[in-house]
Design a protein around this nucleic acid. Structure first.
Length: 121
DNA sequence: ATTCTCACA
DNA sequence: TGTGAGGA
């Protein structure tokens, strides 16, 4: 890990700062952690300390939510990213294979979230 | 003043 | 997800 990645993964913000930066409630921020979407560290006083990477993820989650994707769907998206990384490391599949898989999953996600909604009318 | 965990008239 | 209690 280079210096740049190290800085982005350095936990330095208390939840209050993250709340104003992301416009999310403390409840939501802690809940997303419970869903393993972010992993803030704890300081001496058991206070959660967030990194720039955590904030980026939180902002992404907000976008997905705005697009009508639920928690189950968001979790699947990040699980796919992990698989994508595994594939890169093992170089088992071609980039095209991975792209096709991600594309299929994304379409499946939209279909899942479209059911029983009047959002588009 | 802030954040933490837990629980629900 | 909100919110309030009770402690640190």
């Amino acid at each position: 890990m280079n210096e740049k990645e190290l800085r982005r993964s350095m936990s330095v913000f208390p939840i209050g700062t993250v709340m104003t930066l992301t416009d999310l409630s403390a409840r939501q921020i802690r809940y997303y952690e419970e869903q393993d979407l972010i992993c803030p560290e704890r300081n001496e006083g058991n206070r959660r300390m967030y990194s720039l990477n955590d904030i980026d993820v939180l902002l992404e989650i907000k976008d997905y939510l705005a697009d009508g994707i639920n928690m189950a769907g968001i979790k699947r998206i990040y699980e796919l990213k992990e698989k994508e990384i595994e594939h890169e490391e093992k170089s088992t599949l071609t980039d095209e294979d991975v792209r096709r898989i991600l594309q299929d999953e994304f379409l499946a996600l939209r279909g899942m979230n479209l059911k029983g909604t009047s959002r588009f009318f």
